[in-house]
Design a binder for these strands. Structure first.
Lengths: 131, 131
DNA sequence: GTAGGCGTTGACGTCAGCGTCAAGGTCAAG
DNA sequence: CTTGACCTTGACGCTGACGTCAACGCCTAC
């Protein structure tokens, strides 16, 4: 398939696909007229990239997963490099959550001091990471 | 005082001060030679801006606080506009926390599926917003 | 007079992940 | 032959809060 079809099927823009290629995440064989030609495997690569981006990963983070899929593994997470990225990201997220909770407390304290009686919102999210 | 001294005392760069001025957050009277001259009140403005930025506010968010201080209030948070920003920011932070908790759960699930036995880290932060 | 330490404005670079032209080539349908 | 949908590369724009450099003026000390 060509870039337009891949874009539609993957739910991304053609610009994004060319960008991924420029960043070395995907490649495409070229037809005689210079058009990019993609396979079903490429669709899977792009889908993997997208799902990673939507959970906050960067393209750099996605590299090991793409490499893993290209190496023939069924899941992009089957390789130790990918697992390592998962672990690193998890730690990153935990750090950010901690930072935000700290900030929330600070801001709430300031608000409470500036406007006693403004604190009607619920307390910080406890552990509802399921929804 | 001139810009260098204010920068040192406020712990920011001169570039940042000129940027704040460009954005209309602070102003400076000019000496005969064109140098910016600041007062102690300006130091307070910059300090307020800095403390807001460090808790994740944008310069835009800081405007009402600066205006409040300029209006003669002792605290930048004494004005209803500032309080409104606090409330909005609080909601923003809560949203981000929720997003991160959701992501954390997703990533943890993926990690667990890809590498059963890798989950030794502590569960998501519960409610430790005090430290 | 000159070194150097301050100040001035202006303008481009940074980070990520693209959006959005610009200017053109390719190909099938009418 | 022409329209129009598709493709190509290249390059600037965007967001925020500045960093960094250029090229220059001011002022003090030696």
């Amino acid at each position: 398939m060509r870039i337009g079809e891949l874009a539609r099927r993957a739910g991304v823009s053609t610009r994004a696909l060319r960008y991924y290629e420029q960043q070395g995440l995907i490649t495409a064989r070229r037809a005689a007229n210079g058009y990019r030609e993609y396979s079903e495997a490429d669709l899977r690569l792009v889908t993997e990239i997208r799902s990673l981006l939507t959970v906050g990963f960067t393209l750099e983070d996605a590299r090991p997963f793409v490499a893993c899929l290209r190496a023939g593994h069924e899941s992009g997470a089957s390789c130790p490099e990918s697992v390592e990225v998962y672990r690193r990201k998890l730690a990153e997220i935990d750090g950010e959550i901690h930072t935000l909770l700290t900030r929330r407390a600070e801001v709430a304290a300031q608000l409470g001091a500036a406007c006693p009686g403004c604190m009607f919102g619920p307390p910080p999210d406890r552990n509802e990471g399921e929804s």
